[in-house]
Design a protein around this nucleic acid. Structure first.
Lengths: 184, 184
DNA sequence: GATCGCATGTAAGTGGTTACATGATTTA
DNA sequence: TAAATCATGTAACCACTTACATGCGATC
């Protein structure tokens, strides 16, 4: 039975994409899956060390001049087995925590104008994500038929697109409802 | 400056709705905001005790026959001040972690049929949420014009609706793309 | 001369969850 | 008679995050 620790398996999955250093993992997360995942160095480096101890990955050290050594981790057969075990388990029900909505629902305690400003701020963030999304979509759309791996990458991104669209529509609805609402 | 601990302020917010026991808080979360929030007793009870120590809430004990005492917590002026401070701060950027998508994107390591089954499982969960959503929407739609508090409650729910819709559409797209995909 | 990118790591702290303990009452 | 509801709590554990430390080379 796999551990409940999803982060572990995401790191294993990234190493299955290709051998990487801890630093590379951070970059890769921020470039490719940042819409639904994040990792900190404080989590990455200790986890990679555990992989070595458990035989789920092996390392090779790349000496560099004028730079620290790169420690590149490669997934092992045992690592891939653990990853597959986890992949086959049904995902655990998500326990949501949306800080924006939490603030929003208690927003009757602050002026209406504050509610509006917070949605506008939220929308600007969404616009930034949308820009990133469009670039990624253009990139992935082309080779989505190459392999199931590519198709799954593309579809994963697409979910982000649907959700973004939903959020943006909501912003418009919420803004116009609040602007129309009479002052108390 | 408010602490980074959002859970704390959600509990304070719920106590602002009305005085409640820890048990009530759990029920209220599951009935009204479960689409974007969750709480465990192991978090609720210690937090309520801290509120007492910090003067953010006060308690009254309701004796009952044949049942344990109910300890009802009521927010204080100081508690409301802390809550408002938090509400006025811009929400911190969300650090997403979606376990379903994490499993999905590495799904090329398991049979295509597993990918399909996991989406179907996911969609069934969404259908359950949709049912709950429709009931709640009918309830809240009526009195959304009563007060800004009600309007914000309704709008919060609406975001859930937009996101649900997006997820459901995605399921259809992903299922048909995967069903069409040739076996390797 | 400051900051950014490269690159690795750790120690202390945070913000919880899980599992357990208790026990009467009501419902299936 | 088993399980669910009511009701409170704690102790052990977990999965991280934050802040710090190091240090060279390149860019602004």
């Amino acid at each position: 039975m796999a551990k409940g620790n999803a982060s572990r398996y995401v790191l294993l999955g990234l190493l299955d994409w290709e051998p990487m250093s801890g630093y590379d993992i951070k970059k890769t997360v921020e470039k490719t899956i940042r819409d639904f995942w994040h990792e900190s160095y404080g989590n990455i480096y200790p986890t990679l060390k555990k992989f070595l101890a458990e035989g789920l990955a092996k390392k090779t050290v790349e000496r560099q001049q004028g730079r620290p050594d790169r420690i590149v981790y490669q997934i092992t057969a045992a690592g891939r087995r653990e990853l597959v075990d986890w992949l086959e388990e049904p995902p655990r029900p998500q326990r949501a925590r949306d800080e924006f909505l939490a603030k929003f629902i208690f927003g009757y305690l602050v002026p209406r104008q504050t509610n509006i400003e917070q949605i506008e701020h939220y929308r600007r963030k969404l616009d930034e994500r949308l820009e990133w999304y469009r670039e990624m979509e253009a990139l992935l759309k082309r080779d989505r038929l190459q392999s199931r791996k590519k198709l799954l990458e593309y579809l994963t991104l697409r979910q982000g697109g649907y959700v973004l669209e939903g959020h943006l529509r909501w912003c418009e609805e919420a803004l116009s409802a609040l602007r129309d609402y009479p002052d108390e």
